[in-house]
């Protein structure tokens, strides 16, 4: 677990350093994600501790957004001043973006597998 956590931090650090040097408009951890993904592909395997640690952190990914989310209180007056356009735009546009992405992807997958359609099954919920 300690080793796996170190691996994650090292890749984040490399990502941050690259972003600073190259002046990229992308956050360091996203570059770290890409680099770790590439190195897993090159290595052709995944160590069990890294898999367990990654799954452990990702299971509680929700928790990590809470501190930033509480920051809404700082902007309360600004948001309440324009609450209608802000709420309508975020809610409607988010539903539209989910629907459009899903329909386009599903249509293209159907086209490929000859009308076979969904393969995942289940009534789950993402």
């Amino acid at each position: 677990m300690l080793g796996a956590l170190t691996v994650l931090l090292v890749f984040q650090l490399i990502g941050e350093v690259l972003v600073q040097f190259a002046g990229l408009p992308i956050p360091g951890p996203v570059i770290g994600l890409l680099l770790l993904f590439l190195s897993l592909c090159v290595r052709g395997g995944l160590a069990v501790p890294l898999r367990d640690t990654a799954n452990g952190i990702l299971q509680h990914l929700s928790l990590l957004f809470v501190p930033a989310g509480v920051g809404v209180m700082v902007h309360f007056s600004r948001v309440s001043g324009e609450w209608l356009p802000i709420l309508a735009a975020t809610i409607i546009s988010t539903a539209l973006a989910i629907g459009v992405s899903a329909l386009v992807m599903q249509a293209l997958m159907r086209g490929r597998s000859g009308g076979e359609g969904g393969t995942g099954g289940g009534d789950g919920g993402a």
Binding site: L34, L40, L46, A54, A68, V70
Partner: peptide, 26 residues
């Protein structure tokens, strides 16, 4: 004041983003 403490949780967003490489690889 709140964020002084909560930043330790907030910090983990970085390594968690990197960790997304694992399910992606799978």
């Amino acid at each position: 004041t709140y964020f002084d403490g909560a930043q330790f949780v907030h910090f983990l967003l970085g390594p968690a983003t990197v960790a997304l490489a694992v399910p992606l690889y799978l």
